[in-house]
Design a binder for these strands. Structure first.
Length: 823
RNA sequence: GCGAAAGUGGCGGAAUUGGUAGACGCGCAGGAUUCAGGAUCCUGUGCCCGAGAGGGUGUGGGGGUUCGAGUCCCCCCUUUCGCACCA
């Protein structure tokens, strides 16, 4: 008896829970396999993007479990963050209350979708039992100098009233509120991600199961560039102006220097008029951001001495020189750098050519009207004339080293990660400031530093600042009154290591047992949106390397295979409340059931592409599940009737082969290619053959019946990764007492994978002229003879001469002919 | 501007190693069943010509390699994404 979907889905969800089917034991003996989807922020309700994400991971996890693996498939909540505070302000509720209520709602929604999570391992990052280990790791980082405090210019979002990391600023705007970010001078805690820059870059090559797109984005973000620093003595002052350049070979082409107007350390050397001009430029640059592409600049009145030619070189302040890259100053070579060229043109500065194309195709580069930045031969460069520019570059660096005027150097675009946030709803940073002892780490034995709950959220800065009991503490070192840090950690901290906590979520002594980390890490399949390509995925990689160095894990990289799933689109736009095109998962589950909803999400597009939500498509999928139920029921009845002895007919023999071909195709599509859409298509195709065999031909003999009896236990298992409730229901209808979720994935019988007759295309001059049917292993001569015998093919060969015969066994015959003669 | 990915019926998408383009699904058309609607079942469905057999044409555009190209090479167009004065 197959129950209606609403009834059976609830029943099976309960049964899975009761039997703890997806709880994985740490001492199981199978191959440890870790399947993980990016954990959700408890924003209120599950949306279709979540459903898609988790349906992909769930299908994969269930499939691997059926393959005999020990599958770890946990879920939790990325529970700290701004929206909880915003909601608190709007509704006068405590962020914790809001968050836990959302978690309850969303947990219920996930359960209704029937995902195969090990709920015993559920975590929420806002619980002290979780963040205490984050605080502990931070203290260890502090000890090792990986965490440090400094005053610096930071990105400040006036809406969120907090500092942002560089990664959280997109086009000069806050990643969350879209407000234009301001620059502010502030104290804050930083993590030395730059110490790991080289390893983060190098190890990208090991991540061969990551999309190239993501690896490229990270490579660009890290931004290694090789070059040299060059020191220029300032004229009439006992100071130097140091620059970074990737083109030391162009040193003889320097006709001016350019500094960022933010280089306030140089203001004292300028006369009043120049200083006023530079300040005006600085203010203009700050106001415009970098939206302004037009080159602008002013002379500073300063000059430097060229380290090799000893010539005087003027220094300008220029709007295109970045304050926070390199040294905030450049040597300008207008002949060979387009930006320098444009600026020189703008201000009438001379252009000095020092490299010409090696083939002499252009003997006077100065006539180009733009900078020449390709390789070439050195000119106007003293001893280096005639050399290839790359070689000259090396020698010039050597000459600078000799004179103490420079050295080879590597620059990075990656900045240290600022993790201080002036927000309440986050993990407290475990340090105390004492007037006598300075910055004092909270002793590990005092952890966790609990976030106090008796606060009122006003939106006027962090609620912690005014919380006297939290702030006023005794110095752990000298015992005198001291102040506790009131900033909290960036929420990206919590998501940088949660995948390790899942391994040992109830351990009160340690973040995770190293043996468990050894067993389960790295994550085998990590699935989530591409919007995390830099932020979360870079931080998580960094954290993993730190955890390795601290002895918590033994792997270098957290995620072996990364699948970046596409967005869910409706009416041409990403589903969002503001666009009013959201589809509520609960509604879909109520109307069509979890199985149908999940099947449609997986079928409508390959996992990595965007998915267009079409209600009609869901209805089509409901037709499929309905048809499958009816056909299964009908087949059960046939299997139970008495039929005359006899071999199977041709239709049923074909069906038998189709079953095994479907197993083979689905196994490859899910296991190797991760193309869940074509795996489902293959199952649909099988159902078409199967229901036709029953309805059109009908089972007439015991042989036919046997084919159906063999097919029955295979179908629920093929269905189980995608429509697990229906699969359990069908499995149970066969009399099985165990769960299909625990059954073995079927194995195709290799003898049944080849048909005894295949269709072979016959072409004449590459055009299809006929089709013949032969055994797949027919020899070439037989194929040619049969092809020639085809009426239509014969017509094309009649008045022509065959000059070449191409035969692809089991596939195709192609006659290459030319007119005239007789074949 | 630089980098990456993509462009296939009315629509979502298949085609895995250069070998029968359009699997599977939606939609649409015709039929069966039905009082009717819905549901279900069957048949057809790239475009053009043809009663049919069959022929022509067809994977963004143009060229090329090959017996054979959606797939490989060159040029161009469009879309999406990422980076964007990184010296």
């Amino acid at each position: 008896m197959i129950r209606p979907f609403a009834e059976r889905e609830t029943a099976w969800q309960q049964a899975w829970d009761d039997a703890r089917v997806f709880a994985v034991s740490d001492d199981a003996t199978g191959q440890a396999t870790y399947v993980l989807e990016m954990f959700p922020y408890p924003s209120g309700r599950i949306h279709m993007g979540h459903v898609r994400n988790y349906s992909i991971g769930d299908a994969l996890g269930r499939y691997l479990k059926m393959q005999g693996r020990d599958v770890l498939h946990p879920i939790g909540w990325d529970a700290f963050g701004m929206p909880a505070e915003n909601a608190a302000i709007a509704n006068d509720r405590h962020p914790a209350e809001w968050t836990y209520e959302n978690i309850r709602t969303m947990r219920g929604q996930l359960k209704k979708l029937g995902f195969s999570y090990d709920w015993d391992r559920e975590i929420a990052t806002c619980r002290p039992e979780y963040y205490r280990f984050e605080q502990q790791v931070f203290l260890e980082m502090l000890e090792r100098g990986i965490a440090y405090r400094r005053k610096t210019r930071v990105n400040w979002c006036p809406t969120c009233m907090t500092v942002l990391a560089n990664e959280q600023v997109i086009d000069d705007r806050c990643w969350r509120s879209d407000t234009v970010v301001e620059q502010k001078e502030m104290d804050g805690w930083f993590l030395k991600i730059t110490d790991y820059a080289q390893e983060l870059l190098d190890d990208l090559d090991k991540l061969d199961e990551w999309p190239d797109k993501v690896r490229t984005m990270q490579r660009n973000w890290i931004g290694r560039s090789d070059g040299a620093t060059v020191h220029f003595r300032l004229l009439d002052a006992d100071r130097t102006l140091t620059v970074f350049t990737t083109r030391p070979d162009t040193l003889f082409g320097v006709t001016y220097m350019a500094i960022s107007p933010e280089r306030e350390d140089l203001y004292d050397l300028m006369d009043e008029q120049a200083r006023a001009a530079v300040i005006a430029l600085r203010d203009k640059v700050r106001a415009d951001g970098f939206a302004e592409n037009e080159k602008a600049g002013v002379p500073t009145g300063l000059s430097v001495i060229h380290p090799l030619t000893r010539q005087d070189i003027p220094v300008y302040a220029a709007n295109f020189v970045l304050a926070d890259y390199g040294t905030g100053a450049i040597m300008a070579v207008p002949a060979h750098d387009q930006r320098d060229y444009e600026f020189a043109r703008q201000l009438g500065i001379p252009v000095q050519v020092v490299i010409v194309p090696p083939d002499g195709s252009i003997d006077d580069v100065s006539q180009l009207g733009q900078a020449y930045s390709d390789p070439g031969t050195m000119v106007n460069s003293g001893d280096y004339d005639g050399l290839a520019n790359v070689e000259a570059g090396k020698r010039i660096v050597a000459a600078l080293v000799d004179r103490g005027a420079g050295s080879a150097e590597v620059q990075w675009r990656l900045r240290d990660w600022g993790v201080s946030r002036q927000r309440y709803w986050g993990a407290p940073i475990p340090v105390i400031y004492c007037d006598d002892c300075g910055t004092v780490p909270v002793p590990v034995t005092d952890l966790p530093v609990r976030l106090p709950e008796d606060v009122r959220i006003t939106g006027e800065g962090s609620a912690l600042v005014g919380h006297d009991a939290f702030v006023n503490v005794d110095c752990p070192s000298c015992g005198k009154p001291a102040r506790r840090e009131t900033d909290t950690f960036d929420t990206f901290m919590e998501s940088s290591w949660y995948f390790v906590r899942y391994l040992d979520p109830r351990n009160e002594q340690r973040l995770a047992d190293p043996g468990l980390a050894e067993r389960w890490m790295p994550v085998d399949h990590y699935i989530g949106g591409v919007e995390h390509a830099v932020l979360h995925l870079l931080y998580a990689r960094f954290f993993t390397k730190v955890l390795r160095d601290l002895g918590y894990v033994s792997c270098d990289e957290p995620f072996r295979h990364l699948l970046t799933q596409g967005m869910v689109i409706k009416d041409g736009a990403k589903m969002s409340k503001s666009k009013g095109n959201v589809v509520d998962p609960d509604e879909m589950v109520a109307r069509y059931g979890a199985d149908t909803t999940r099947l449609f999400m997986l079928f409508a597009a390959p996992p990595e592409k965007d998915l267009d939500w079409q209600e009609q498509g869901v209805e089509g999928m409901a037709r499929f599940t309905g048809r499958l139920e009816r056909t299964f029921q009908a087949t059960l009845e046939i299997a139970a009737t008495d039929l005359p002895q006899g071999d199977s007919g041709a239709v049923f023999a074909d069906l038998d082969r189709a079953v095994h071909q479907t197993i083979a195709k689905m196994t490859e599509d899910i296991g190797q290619r991760l193309q869940l859409n074509t795996a489902i298509a293959a199952l649909m195709e099988l159902l078409n053959n199967w229901s036709h065999a029953i309805n059109e031909t009908g089972a007439a003999s015991s042989g036919d019946q046997q084919v159906l009896r063999d097919l029955l236990p295979i179908v629920p298992r093929l269905l189980a990764p995608f429509a697990p409730h229906l699969a359990e229901e069908l499995w149970q209808a066969l009399g099985n007492e165990s769960f299909v979720a625990r059954a073995d994935w079927p194995v195709a019988d290799p003898d049944k994978l080849t048909a005894d007759v295949v269709e072979i295309a016959v072409q004449v001059n590459g055009k299809l002229r006929g089709r013949i049917h032969m055994a797949p292993d027919a020899d070439k001569q037989a194929m040619l003879d049969t092809a020639r015998a085809d009426d239509n093919v014969a017509r094309y060969l009649a008045d022509s001469q065959v000059v070449k015969e191409i035969v692809v066994p089991g596939k195709l015959v192609n006659f290459v002919v030319r007119p005239g003669g007789g074949g």
